[in-house]
């Protein structure tokens, strides 16, 4: 009996560690959703597709025998540039039509790139070789790989970078001003269109990075954006959409919950649990764990 409990606890610890690693990935992708929502109140459904296109480009860079760091850079740049182009051509003109038309446009853009990906890259999954040689460390009954550690560390570095960017740089302060009040920021002489483009670029570049990391842990295929995107999006909402630390918190919560449910109960409920948490949070605190409540003025 005591031994069973011990095994159970070891298992839980293992799922927790796997969950943190996976949650880091969600957090990385969720950041893009959150930054874009924070600045123009748009749920950018195509964010996952930026990730997929980035990962695809990174994959082909590797096929062309470019070294891994260059391939990651290619992935980040291509995702970022695509996001800037899409924002300029599609989202910017629709912005004045209101939020629901913008949301529908985002859904349309997402669908377009999914089919575009299937036709251009084929539906077959592609794998990305590990960017470091995998090593597994044992702590008692628990295994931690250096790749898991690396993913976690990268996410933490990205978060630190974003914190520095938004608090200590001119462009970061302009981002915060724009997200607080777009019109007022414009009146203060901030070029809000430039800030929005930059936000899209930054968010999508992080998604490209996430896509490469995911390409290693899973695979690169046209639907990856959809699958990972929805999870990351749920993470963003759970943490409080528009709030940068919220994206990280939400990512970890979703990652850990999924691994616990899949490990302890049934792996086919892995996807269900994130939606369950999403709805729970929306009912208890619609603005998310770290979000602020707003009330309409009468």
């Amino acid at each position: 009996m005591g031994q069973n409990v011990a095994f159970f606890l070891w298992d839980c610890l293992q799922y927790l560690i796997n969950g943190i690693s996976q949650g880091s990935l969600y957090a990385l992708v969720a950041l893009g959703y959150t930054m874009v929502y924070g600045i123009i109140r748009l749920v950018n459904f195509a964010h996952g597709e930026f990730l997929m296109i980035g990962a695809m480009c990174g994959y082909y860079a590797l096929q062309a025998h470019l070294p891994m760091p260059v391939a990651i850079l290619v992935a980040m740049l291509s995702a970022g540039l695509l996001a800037v182009v899409v924002e300029r051509l599609v989202y910017r003109p629709i912005r004045k039509s209101g939020r629901i038309p913008a949301l529908i446009t985002a859904i349309g853009t997402s669908l377009f790139f999914q089919y575009f990906g299937q036709l251009t890259f084929g539906a077959d999954p592609k794998t990305i070789p590990p960017f470091i040689t995998e090593k597994i460390y044992n702590f008692g009954e628990v295994n931690v790989s250096n790749v898991q550690l690396a993913i976690f560390v990268i996410t933490m570095l990205v978060l630190a970078f974003l914190w520095w960017l938004t608090h200590f740089t001119k462009i970061g302060k302009a981002m915060r001003a724009t997200s607080y009040n777009l019109q007022a920021a414009e009146l203060m002489g901030i070029n809000t269109n430039k800030i929005i483009s930059f936000t899209f670029f930054l968010g999508a570049a992080l998604a490209g990075l996430g896509g490469m990391l995911m390409g290693y842990t899973m695979s690169v295929e046209p639907m990856m954006g959809m699958n990972l995107g929805i999870k990351a999006f749920v993470a963003a909402v759970v943490g409080g959409i528009g709030v940068i630390p919220g994206a990280a918190l939400g990512g970890f919560i979703i990652g850990i919950a999924e691994n616990l449910v899949a490990g302890l109960y049934k792996s086919s409920f892995r996807d269900g649990v994130s939606f369950f948490i999403l709805i729970l949070i929306l009912l208890i605190k619609p603005s998310g764990l770290l979000g602020k409540n707003t009330k309409e003025k009468v």
Partner: peptide, 13 residues
């Protein structure tokens, strides 16, 4: 299948 979402976006615009 890519034309369908493009039509949707154009309609919205």
């Amino acid at each position: 299948m890519t034309i369908f979402p493009v039509l949707l976006i154009l309609l919205m615009l």
